[in-house]
Simulated assay, not measured.
Amino acid sequence: MVSHFGEVIFPSSRAFWDDEDEYESDENLEHYLKLNVCWLKKKPEHMQKFIIIEGEPLIPFVKQCLCHNAEEVCIIETEDHKKVSVIYHIDKQIYLCIVLPHFDTKNAGTLVNQISDLLSSTESTISIVCRHVSQFQSTNIPETPSFLRILATKNANVAKYKIEPLEQPNIVFGVGAGVLSYAEFKGISAKLYVLYIDNFVLDSKCAEPLLQILTNETDCKLQYPKFTENFFSKGNLYM
């Protein structure tokens, strides 16, 4: 793990980089979530960009922006056929992975393990998560409706976007954190954007930095939402 990370937290699992997992008892292994990856279309051998969206405030917004003409190509589900993630083909070699809100982040390592072959075949991985500004720990909090922070692997180009890195002691957890950790371990280019918002609704003002990311990272024609819909419906942020 590179030293400039603010702090990336992910739960203990049988994921790819932890040698200690080899010594776990069979009794403990029975409790791990088992996921099945079901491709509805041909699995891509190479991807230019793989975008991972995690957190309910982001999902309906990003789906409206990017998925208006997108094709659902893959479903990741539990053994009892409960869908936990969907992958869309956005354009050419750009794919979007939606992590559904009911997915338990304690199983993030298992999900990352299931998509590790995709991460290895991707030129660049971009993860986006959302947090309420009350979770941002700093002596200098921007007085704006929303703002971005970024974590990246050593070989990712982040200078041109001029987004401040996430400083310590802030914590990132979940699938996005696991993907970033895996990418750093494997030498893959990856970025993790954290969108901090000061409201419990992703309105037009809060969404401006998110639109900036999607425009810069995808080079796709976006379908801009009209914000007539409440993009956040549960009254508390994805934790």
Results as ranks from 00 to 15, higher is better:
Lys160Pro: 01
Leu211Thr: 04
Leu111Val: 06
Lys49Arg: 15
Val62Leu: 03
Cys97Tyr: 05
Gln93Cys: 04
Ile128Tyr: 02
Phe136Ser: 11
Gln114Ser: 13
Ala152Ser: 14
Leu118Val: 12
Ala152Asn: 11
Phe5Lys: 05
Asn69Lys: 15
Leu58Asn: 07
Asp117Pro: 00
Ala183Gly: 05
Lys43Cys: 12
Ser127Leu: 02
Asp18Lys: 09
Ile115Gln: 07
Val73Tyr: 11
Glu7Trp: 08
Gly55Phe: 02
Phe232Asp: 09
Val172Thr: 14
Asp219Gly: 10
Leu118Phe: 10
Asn157Gln: 13
Cys206His: 02
Ser121Val: 09
Ile163Ser: 06
Ile141Ser: 03
Leu180Phe: 08
Ser189Trp: 01
Glu22Thr: 10
Tyr196Leu: 03
Asp91Cys: 04
Gln223Cys: 11
Leu96Phe: 05
Cys206Ser: 08
Gly174Met: 09
Leu210Trp: 00
Glu7Ser: 14
Leu192His: 07
Phe5Arg: 03
Asp26Trp: 02
Ala156Val: 02
Lys154Ser: 15
Thr139Ile: 10
Glu167Met: 03
Ile52Gly: 06
Glu77Lys: 15
Glu143Asp: 15
Tyr161Met: 09
Asn216Met: 09
Ser12Cys: 05
Gln223Pro: 10
Lys221Trp: 06
Glu27Trp: 01
Lys92Thr: 09
Met239Trp: 04
His4Tyr: 03
Phe16Trp: 08
Leu180Thr: 12
Glu7Arg: 07
Phe10Ser: 11
His46Gln: 12
Glu229Ile: 06
Ala152Pro: 00
Ile98Gly: 03
Ala207Trp: 01
Asp19Arg: 03
Phe227Cys: 01
Thr153Arg: 06
His132Lys: 08
Trp17Ile: 04
Pro145Lys: 04
Gln93Pro: 01
Lys154Tyr: 07
Lys160Tyr: 11
Gln93Leu: 10
Val158Cys: 13
Phe10Glu: 08
Ala207Phe: 00
Gln114Met: 12
Ile98His: 02
Ser181Leu: 14
Ser124Glu: 13
Gly178Tyr: 04
Asp219Pro: 01
Asp117Ile: 06
Ile126Val: 13
Ile188Pro: 04
Ala70Phe: 06
Asn107His: 14
Ser116Asn: 13
Thr122Glu: 03
Asn216Leu: 11
Leu237Asp: 06
Ile126Met: 10
Tyr196Pro: 05
Leu222Tyr: 13
Cys206Tyr: 00
Pro145Asp: 07
Glu167Ile: 12
Asp19Cys: 08
Leu66Lys: 10
Asn199Gln: 10
Asp21Val: 15
Glu20Cys: 11
